[in-house]
């Protein structure tokens, strides 16, 4: 069974396995009436499998469900929830929950944006980082908090977060 959490995209299945699971999901829906209206559900499934919506997967959905690709694209771009680019190697989930907000999450966000030159929802050009907002990560005691990859970083300051990002980048370079 492939993992469905978008945060741990580590290594679930091969492309073939993911596709098989997506197709099974579509086949199930096709038994229902109005299968085409299930597009959102299918896109959710695809994103949970792939971490985002690759074009070739949307092509698959189009062919299988008989839904024009442009229509799928319209829906996928309409909802902010759907990601259209692969997430960065490290996904930054920056907490904007109440506790973190009170402790200056907005400034942290600004620092991250400036450092990485991306917006919320974006991916850095080198593919190392992507940035997403998060609601309470359940670590309010450490506010302000960000989760980077699988790790929680707390008591952030703008300066501290920039340093942390630099460390991750070094790590990424080494891994290459």
């Amino acid at each position: 069974m492939a993992k469905t959490s978008t945060k741990e995209r580590a290594t679930p299945a091969t492309h073939e396995e993911k596709l098989a699971e997506l197709k099974a999901h579509m086949a199930e829906l096709q038994k229902q009436e109005n299968a085409q209206s299930q597009l959102i559900s299918i896109l959710h499934k695809a994103q949970s499998l792939y971490g985002y919506l690759p074009n070739h997967v949307m092509d698959e959905i189009a062919q299988t469900m008989g839904i024009p690709t442009a229509h799928i694209w319209g829906v996928a771009t309409f909802y902010h929830y759907f990601k259209l680019t692969p997430p960065g190697r490290y996904e930054i989930a920056l907490c904007l929950g109440t506790a973190c907000y009170v402790k200056g999450a907005a400034q942290i966000l600004q620092a991250v944006k400036d450092e990485l030159k991306i917006d919320v929802g974006g991916v850095t050009e080198d593919g190392v980082f992507s940035l997403a907002p998060a609601r309470c990560l359940g670590a309010c005691g450490l506010a302000p908090v960000a989760m980077i990859g699988e790790k929680i970083h707390g008591e952030l300051t703008p300066k501290k977060v920039v340093q942390i990002l630099k460390d991750y980048r070094k790590q990424a370079e080494k891994d290459k």
């Binding site: 949307m58 442009a70 799928i72 309409f78």
Partner: peptide, 18 residues
Amino acid sequence: HCLTQAHRGFNTVVMPAY
């Protein structure tokens, strides 16, 4: 079905898929 209105609000653009 070449065209769609992609994105939303101020950012809406008419375009082909992808």
